[in-house]
Design a protein around this nucleic acid. Structure first.
Lengths: 120, 120
DNA sequence: ACTTAATTTCGTTATTGAACGAAATGACAA
DNA sequence: TTGTCATTTCGTTCAATAACGAAATTAAGT
């Protein structure tokens, strides 16, 4: 059963109506990251990060890739619909220069190559 | 005190996260309408319509024009920021063909030229 | 199998937001 | 100024959602 355009669009807007989800999207534009790395940057509990990721994923914004113990998330490459594709394309331009986002991106760059979530 | 890009964008997405507000926007693309005409179409109480309109207005999506006893609302012509302008431009294409929206638009076309809110 | 680490799920709490009806406000006409 | 109609504001109720910690799940490595 296919969702209506209306419900799909509402789901997209609701997904984007949370600051931490926008922050997560913006850091994923920079680099594919695992849950614990995202938690390092966003600074909420791991369960909250996981919940945000599941919301972003079910709306089609991000995709996951499992590798060993880790689950990596990246911006979606396969788009399920037009609004999603167009928003993913334009979103970074809307938040460019925002101080909080720039800080997060800076943190992404300082994340070590080898994952060391528990031995941070 | 200027709002941050982040808060502005969040406000835009929150404003668009409600079905009745999307319906109101879509009928206003068709034609400038007063509060009671919008109520006729959307079918919620007048106070609820008024609340939605104030939210749409404060986010910059619509503007008002007072004429006698009536307050007419139309899609904004003066944009306060980039995301707003771009979304207002593209939104109709995202909801084109949606059954519920088409029905609302049909109702707009059948609204009489002379306003007769109380003598409907 | 057993332990450890990463992630998800569950149950709870606190906040936000949509809807309603009633009361208040604003504008015009008699 | 009084009455009427359009709209907004206020107070309340109910549903949705973000956050947390604890428990459950999943995947290696020993």
């Amino acid at each position: 059963m296919t969702k209506s355009k209306m419900n799909n669009l509402l789901n997209i807007f609701k997904t984007l109506s949370d600051k931490n989800r926008l922050r997560i999207l913006m850091i994923l534009y920079e680099k594919e990251l695992c849950v614990c790395e995202i938690q390092e940057i966003i600074q909420v509990t791991i369960s909250t990060v996981s919940k945000h990721l599941s919301i972003l994923k079910s709306a089609g914004f991000i995709e996951e890739r499992k590798e060993g113990k880790w689950v990596y998330y990246h911006i979606a490459k396969n788009f399920t619909n037009t609004p999603l594709r167009e928003i993913l394309f334009i979103l970074p331009s809307w938040l460019k220069g925002e101080a909080e986002i720039e800080k997060d991106i800076e943190k992404v760059k300082n994340i070590k190559e080898v994952i060391t979530c528990s031995t941070k």
